[in-house]
């Protein structure tokens, strides 16, 4: 089980949506310009890229490497080193179970098992229809309300399996989200 985000899934080559209808590239360029294309801004730039595109595709990594004058190996190395960066697309919805010590002592492992059984997903994977990613986190620092679960960026404290199941169903019953969804932050 990896850390906060799935890393091992094969990254699919995806076209970065057509630039005509897409100002994401412009925003990313502006971010790099603000950092004067300094190589040490790499992590900041990758944060921005993931926020904009939801994940870091090989094309995106190549663009960043080119613009920051860094070897692609260095960019790929950094992107895969940190748990936060995802090289595969995430589900439209994300459910992140905190597995920090406080949550663990309060039964987070059983909670995760219940969610795995409910969704048929393994922790760190995304459903085939791309609607839901089931993830784990090392510690959200929300230990005071353990066990904690984050549903689409919303932290739920004192989580229990029954409530979560209900909320997940409610979430997935909504009309499918477009691809625009930008991850959980």
């Amino acid at each position: 089980m990896a850390g906060a985000l799935p890393r091992a899934a094969p990254a699919q080559e995806q076209d970065l949506a057509a630039p005509t209808v897409d100002n994401r590239q412009k925003i990313l360029q502006a971010t790099m310009r603000r950092h004067q294309y300094r190589p040490d801004a790499l992590i900041e730039v990758l944060h921005k890229a993931q926020e904009l595109y939801g994940y870091l595709s090989p094309t995106l990594l190549a663009t960043v490497a080119h613009d920051l004058h860094l070897p692609p190996s260095r960019v790929y190395g950094v992107a895969t080193f940190y748990h936060f960066f995802s090289l595969a697309p995430q589900g439209a919805h994300t459910c992140t179970v905190c597995l920090g010590t406080a949550c663990y002592v309060k039964g987070a492992a059983a909670l995760l098992a219940a969610l795995e059984a409910e969704t048929g997903l393994k922790a760190g994977s995304t459903s085939a229809d791309g609607q839901l990613s089931l993830l784990t986190a090392r510690c959200l620092g929300a230990c005071g309300i353990a066990p904690a679960v984050v549903l689409d960026g919303l932290v739920i404290g004192h989580a229990d399996a029954a409530t979560l199941r209900a909320r997940l169903h409610a979430l997935l019953a909504q009309p499918p989200l477009a691809e625009e969804h930008h991850g959980s932050r």
Partner: peptide, 11 residues
Amino acid sequence: DEGDPGAFMDR
């Protein structure tokens, strides 16, 4: 970079 799971003083 308060990484210890179970710690949230710095946060």
